[in-house]
Design a protein around this nucleic acid. Structure first.
Lengths: 76, 76
DNA sequence: ACACAATGTAACATTTAGTATACATAGTGT
DNA sequence: ACACTATGTATACTAAATGTTACATTGTGT
């Protein structure tokens, strides 16, 4: 799949709504800290499962954490 | 990540709410038919981006199409 | 100044998502 | 019986997500 048009506010959620370190979040969702770093930095977007897990930590619907900035609905 | 606890009703949506073939859905979201087959058959769950795209085709929130049957909220 | 915790970065390995191609089966229409 | 369309399956390949390890930076407390 092409370059992801997905943004997220994991970083803000981690700070503002919850006091939580990258490592803690990583532990809670069962990945390594590097994965959280990569997601926050926008290096790639998580798998669907991981996205669900992260959203659940913040007790938010997935679409409140991750946003798809849909490019084209009408295909080539 | 472990074995996905994610289910979806792409198949039903494709039939009931929209008259749509696997190939058509694949075209609209920009993947091959095999990918749709694999998702419907539960061979693997889509990337977050693809999940968003599919949900958009059905004009539904992502969580109406894909469901995470969270195993453990309380981590090890 | 030193230790320590949180974060950023980078190379490489492994696993999983998605592609490409090909063939099989079931249903429908002629 | 034949052609056609939609679906299922399989194998081999590529690309992206995640892991592993290791080191650098920045801020805080003592």
């Amino acid at each position: 799949m092409g370059q992801s048009h997905i943004s997220n506010n994991v970083r803000n959620l981690r700070f503002n709504h919850h006091e939580m370190t990258q490592q803690q979040l990583a532990d809670q969702v069962g990945v390594t800290r590097q994965t959280i770093v990569a997601i926050e930095k926008g290096k790639y977007s998580p798998s669907l499962e991981l996205a669900f897990r992260i959203a659940r930590v913040f007790k938010l619907p997935l679409e409140d954490v991750f946003t798809y900035e849909g490019a084209d609905s009408t295909n080539k």
